[in-house]
Design a protein around this nucleic acid. Sequence first.
RNA 1: GGGCCGUUAGCUCAGAGGGAGAGCACCGGCCUUUUAAGCCGGGUGUCGCUGGUUCGAGUCCAGCACGGCUCACCA
Length: 484
Amino acid sequence: MVRIKKWQTLKEEGVDLFPHRAEITHSVTQVKKEFESLSAEELEKDGIRVSVAGRILTVRKMGRATFFHLGDALSRLQAYLRQDKVGPTEYQRFSLLDIGDIICIKGRLFRTRTGELTVLVEKYKFLAKCFHPLPEKWHGLQDVELRYRKRYLDLIINPESARVFWLRSALIAEIRKFFDERGYIEVETPMMQTIPGGALARPFKTFHNALGIDLYLRIAPELYLKRLVVGGFEKVYEINRNFRNEGISSQHNPEFTMLEFYEAYKDYHDMMEMTEELLVHLAQKLLGKLEITYGEHQISLQRPWKRIKFRQALVEYSGLSPAKLADKSAVIELASQLASEKTPLSYGKALDVLFDKQVKPRLIQPTFVINPPKEISPLAKSSPENPDEAERFELVIAGMEIANAFSELTDPIEQKKRFEQQAEERRKGDEETHPIDLDYVQALEYGLPPTGGEGIGIDRLTMILANKQSIREVILFPLLRPKD
RNA sequence: GGGCCGUUAGCUCAGAGGGAGAGCACCGGCCUUUUAAGCCGGGUGUCGCUGGUUCGAGUCCAGCACGGCUCACCA
């Protein structure tokens, strides 16, 4: 292989093939940021010298002078290498390098005839060999599978991909700041649980050898966070992974990142206010605007957002009359047609199916859908005006559920009853019910203050802000079937 | 899991029964402000895998693998 041979030649010429460090003054991105605004004259006058390391991305050789670009994940910087600057030995040695190799250069900044900020190289140092040719320079790496399997190649070659993950990182940092400034404590609760509660979903199962017990990867941190509110952490949040053993789609990855936060003395109306505040803040801070593009849609995050009752939404978007909606057997009948071969649906689940199918996809602008059936909300307080409804909302943007919140159920007796109802549903054949967690009930018996709680899907929020249609575009290493 | 589509050079893709193609990348040569640098020369391949049909299969058929979109379930 040609690249290996070149690399061996470097060794024969006494070049250190695995250097331990490089003396740099700037990253490629820093140079761009700091000096891009300076004119050719200013650069000439100031004589700014920099030492920058990066990957060789392009090379244009013209006899005794060569132009090339060094890149990091976000930007690229041009360099100009001349034989009369570095001498014939070093100049010729440069042809032993390949696109993809990592080097460090030192030199003065100037602007070329066409105006590009460029380093006039005085010295360069080999740092790492790239033994494989990089994907092509102007189509980049298109193959979606390869982009996910070899994410490093994607990041090297497609600046748009790197941009998404910088955005994601900034998003999470900003969320932390938001909660920290409001006096919240950030915590970590078990990822491995003996009772997988806090949501209705199938868990991953594993086994602890020393204890000889089954464990489940958590489907939500909810019950632990509320135990902490009982313990006096009145404002608490966690940003961490959840695991659900269910289908994979453009909106679902088996492990995904969730923000959950709980605040004592608040209810779900307060959570709506806070959600608007948080998302508006994030959009403003990260994108500098509230009118955003998502696929073919224009989405406005201008407050206040639409609030609509769950039942009202069903009437408005599914075209069912209120009378028809109240007819339990008719609703169940209709829903089971939509949800093929599902185990017998309860009335509440049937309504939920209709909502998911017929309403959710049509909610493009941010919409709080409030007061869904109590039956599908075993951890939420019921509404004082209508005991069949829960004090709960789902936030839908671009047809995706982004957030889910409620006034937490604080009554231990009622909570135990709800758990038992769930167990009853399970006996009837529903696999997605909430397991009974008596330890949690006991925590409630010590007194959980009125509390508002909410979960926000970080991956989906990133999708909205980064304008990506697939969750795999915002997860560095999405789950793929192993090859071979 | 179902349906539709895809898999050809390192990358991006064309090729539709007669024996493997282009651009970029790569190799050799020329070139001291280029930037999709240019000019001359060079094809580097398990056509996803396994069978089948055929004188002959990258091309047609079947099965399998992996992926994409979509439906179903979920957030």
